[in-house]
Design a protein around this nucleic acid. Structure first.
Lengths: 372, 372
DNA sequence: CCATCTTCTTTCGAAATCGAAGATAAAGCG
DNA sequence: CGCTTTATCTTCGATTTCGAAAGAAGATGG
């Protein structure tokens, strides 16, 4: 999908525009050119006209949508012990989403082959007949080199280091394959739910701590590890050695895994980070204190970043985000310590876009790859 | 200067391109279109052809430059007790640069009127005859709201809070006026000297601590305070209250002002941050220890930012940057603590572009305003 | 219900841009 | 030195894009 046509399709698919007039405003093209290109896109079956948008005082715009028969995207978000898999249409709307158990520690080949099989399964059962698969995207809980599509020195993915994930999947499908860090996908998906916010930090507080960074509306990847805050040193009375070899990393105190291990030491057995949230909801004081302390530590780290990057919003996602004391403690730390100029219009809130945000983000990024 | 012509002129003036072929590559326009536009720009006196660039194996490109008679830019960089003032041609090349004493504490009106008078003076003595003044840019040692051109809650500029700087200067000249934080100007100027580095942190270590952030080649302003690291809390045995009211801010330990006041307590009187550097060069152990400690503290803060934003380079400028122990201590802290992925190709170095970097940065930003 | 306003969309000649092919100029090499 | 290679720059017809104006469709308001 070359040039101007691809741009227009992206604007529609991405939800930024839904009429010719909006396309003209957003793309910078003349209205007449937009009309021409849209006719062609409709002619080639990629766009459809479907009803109309409500009027803004004049003639009602005709609603444009990506054709449901134009293609599907297969997306997955891998965690340590489970995976969310989904099919999206080219507008990023989920056709089906499933969560299945999946041990990432089984290594890249087994995991990726299982994913490919699961995609085939989903396509067979839920894929609309005759609609072609157009791309694959996968989110992984570790740093990904965006250029090569390889995982680079992940701390919680044994056997994956330097494995050519994109290449391996590309052998299954002759299609665009996108491999990205899970927090980055979450950030892209979540940012869509915060219109007007150009610079956003999206925290993923699950069994690990991840963070995706949107600067001026685009995902900032850096060298593949941008947004990593899990190994920032925090001040603490005691002293813990992190899996990375350094002392007192944030992750060693405030990640879901760290909370669970402290609770286990106190004789409270929990299996997953969401169990910690349940304990907090049940008013178990040990859990609440732990979570609040985690929030404080995270908040102190965010303090530095807020002064530094001046985000418009900090969005907290991941399974721990449902624990109210976590957010309050983060808010308290940031608002107490940051510059007034930086916090004046800063929103700190939990995820708006639900459990599928990362899959939606995968769709958004993948669409760019598919339509280029 | 509208549309495509402005883009081409910017590419030449900004030093990104110096031949038609390069313009075609960078602008995305067809070579033929570039030729046409360049002819027009030469015709209107804004560009000149001047010799040729060395060959890359084929026909030698003809070097294009911005005409020296197209206009001049007046730029200034204000410190606490002095100002650097300069005139640049539209390509950003300095025609004259002077440093003059100037007390910023005299307040905005007096200071700005003095600046305007100084510009008039420079123009009269060094401005080429018949070449029009095209724009004004000023760097100030405090946060600037980019939208309004006002200073916002500056900690070291008494009387300036919320003063409409751009507006006040605009009354003197009916020209584009640009007001920006001094560290941001330094960052823009310095980034030009680091080709290939898309994301750069530029630290200004003088009597205060400032930091400009270039993300993907563009200055990141945030809400006007982006890059502020001076009020990050550092871990310390003792406890110092910063002028901002919080405890243990980086600025209270590692800024030139802080170092000077500690030295004064030890009976070593110094007047300016560069005197501290002189003491270090003379091997005075108290000064060296202080500077090394400052570097360590700064480095620990940078640690967080390096993991977070994955810069390609950290450039240290400001008068303290000439103290070798400062850089070594910063390097040690960052390389010791950051993720290998983030430090693998990270350069940490002192400024390459000399004392006029901020003025050059002012020229670069101002050019965009003038040519749009 | 009709005139008027607003907004969206299309029409059509004018202008800008492209791209392929050719002209120009220099480097590399036998 | 002359041939080949490489890169820059120009010419010119084909294509795309623009912009103003008109047409279409609904909102607004007497």
């Amino acid at each position: 999908m070359r040039g101007a046509q691809g741009d227009l399709l992206r604007l529609i698919a991405g939800g930024h525009a839904e009429s010719r007039a909006e396309l003209a405003r957003l793309s910078g093209l003349a209205a007449s050119s937009v009309s021409l290109r849209v006719e062609e896109l409709i002619g080639s079956g990629l766009l459809v006209e479907e009803g109309s948008v409500s009027s803004r005082g004049g003639r009602r715009p005709r609603r444009l949508r990506v054709s449901p028969t134009a293609g599907v995207l297969a997306v997955a978000d891998l965690g340590g012990h489970h995976a969310r898999l989904g099919l999206l249409d080219l507008s990023g709307t989920p056709l089906v989403v499933e969560e299945r158990p999946c041990e990432i520690a089984l290594g890249p080949e087994a995991t990726l082959n299982w994913i490919a099989a699961s995609f085939d399964d989903l396509l067979a059962t839920h894929g609309p007949a005759g609609v072609p698969l157009r791309g694959i995207a996968i989110g992984l809980p570790g740093p990904v080199d965006p250029a090569s599509g390889r995982v680079v020195s992940p701390s919680r993915m044994p056997g994956w280091n330097n494995f050519p994930v994109a290449e391996h999947l590309g052998a299954h499908y002759d299609l665009p394959v996108l491999v990205e860090n899970d927090a980055n996908l979450l950030a892209v998906g979540e940012a869509r739910a915060w219109p007007g916010c150009e610079t956003v930090l999206v925290l993923k507080a699950g069994s690990g701590i991840g963070c995706g960074v949107i600067v001026n509306g685009v995902l900032h990847r850096g060298r593949g590890a941008a947004g990593d805050i899990s190994h920032v040193r925090v001040s603490s009375d005691s002293s813990v050695t992190c899996s990375c070899g350094h002392l007192d990393c944030l992750e060693a105190y405030a990640s879901g895994a760290a909370l669970m291990s402290v609770l286990a030491e106190q004789g409270i057995a929990v299996g997953r980070p969401s169990d910690v949230v349940a304990l907090v909801d049940d008013g178990i004081p040990e859990a609440t204190a732990l979570v609040r302390n985690a929030g404080r530590l995270i908040g102190e780290v965010l303090t530095v970043l807020v002064n530094f990057i001046n985000p418009d919003a900090i969005v907290v996602g991941g399974s721990l985000s449902k624990a109210e004391p976590l957010i309050s403690a983060i808010r308290a730390a940031v608002y107490e310590r940051c510059l007034p100029l930086a916090t004046r219009d800063l929103e700190i809130a939990v995820t708006r876009s639900g459990p599928d945000a990362a899959l939606l983000g995968a769709g958004i990024l993948l669409l760019d790859a598919v339509l280029s």
